[in-house]
Design a protein around this nucleic acid. Structure first.
Lengths: 234, 234
DNA sequence: ACCTGAACACCGTTCAAGT
DNA sequence: ACCTGAACACCGTTCAAGT
């Protein structure tokens, strides 16, 4: 409850329509996303929230893709970049897990992140942290430079995988998993001996265990795989 | 030009409207996708192509997501699963490259593939091949079972990354790359020393070289990272 | 059972016209 | 320069009614 304000009394008490700014637009977009999911963050809905028409937004935002990228940049600010303690591997895993958690929380944004990669300050901080940790672990710098992409892409794709299109809740995710698990289990050991033999293994493991194994696998791979000599910048 | 046909003359010469079937619907969807991109494969457009109303499609297809998954199953049939020669690593890479190429060719389908994972016969064949190759390389079976996901997800995500939303051509992809590369190059070596120092390395390498390095990195990681003991099936 | 017209409830984006 | 009403050209999905 606002006590009083210096705003001219000639205005009505309800908050005056604020001037449009890029920051204000992105902030409103984040708010809608938190409240109702990314699927509701449309130009029209956003314009309505800002008490204007959709056309007005195009002064500040090139298109919907750019809007989604801006939302993501904003969210990356909440990634826990200063991981607690433990050796470099543990801290690296922890930062990556935090990044993954942010994307999991806002399902749908991960899919956007794969296509429209962020490039803001928060993203830079994240990359800086990851490079520092890899250096601490003695990972050769060129492998670290290429490896960053692999690690972030894995986290992003994993979050995206668990995103059932926009909202449609548990149902479809379950459907698809059943379809896959059914197909694997039904595989004939005549035509698909490996699949038949390993179906249970392929479907085993808690998501957290698999995510963690994935990170460790990538880190080991990065550690053991030299980047080819060439590498001309492009 | 058809010479003559056994069709009753009472019908007009133009092909009689064929009965709707799931297979026919999927086939028409694939055709539209090949000709105009996945973005044009909409229920309404598809119905128009089949000379009916969109509501009719819902008798055979639950929703748009299921339609996209069906298209993908179809396409997976063109993956070169029987790789030429070379050691198991080379053949493994070649199968994965073929899978990636299919998704690259039909940009946008990769994004769909991350969310709606395929589970058809073609997918099973691909998984069988990959498991056989990993076994040939002496990869412990549990690591292979979990590793498959990593390899296919990497290929899928990489294709998805290069997919600029639907169609909007080179322009935006270039935009985003410039944004990222600009941000990396502009990074201050005071606040982001690692990023500043490694910007060139991070942006280096041809896409093919990076894809190949990614596959090798994953394979090495899978080879070196044991799956935790537990692994209860769920 | 299968099919469909019509409607409901939306979209992104552009552009000429206003201030 | 910034903002906007209105339009253009679409969407997915449902449902009552027909055959």
């Amino acid at each position: 409850m606002r006590a009083h304000s210096d705003a001219p009394r000639s205005r009505r008490e309800r908050p005056a329509k604020p001037a449009l700014t890029r920051a204000g637009i992105v902030a409103a977009a984040v708010e809608i996303m938190r409240a109702e999911g990314l699927g509701k963050v449309t130009m029209r809905r956003l314009a309505q929230e800002l008490d204007t028409g959709p056309a007005s937004l195009y002064v500040y935002v090139r298109n919907t893709a750019e809007l989604h990228a801006a939302i993501l940049d904003e969210l990356l600010g909440t990634v826990h970049v200063a991981a607690a303690d433990g050796d470099w591997r543990a801290r690296l895993e922890s930062v990556l897990a935090s990044y993954t958690a942010v994307l999991f929380e806002h399902r749908g944004l991960a899919t956007a992140a794969l296509v429209a990669r962020p490039s803001g300050e928060h993203y830079l901080n994240l990359v800086e942290t990851l490079l520092a940790l890899l250096d601490e672990g003695g990972v050769p710098s060129r492998q670290a430079a290429w490896g960053i992409d692999l690690l972030l892409q894995y986290a992003t794709a994993t979050a995206a995988e668990h995103t059932t299109r926009d909202e449609s809740p548990r149902v479809r995710a379950q459907d698809e998993w059943d379809a896959l698990s059914g197909a694997l289990r039904r595989a004939s050991d005549q035509t698909h001996p490996y699949v038949a033999g390993l179906a249970a293994e392929m479907l085993s493991g808690e998501p957290e265990a698999r995510l963690s194994w994935g990170f460790r696998t990538l880190i080991n791979g990065i550690l053991h795989t030299p980047v080819p000599a060439d590498g001309s910048p492009n």
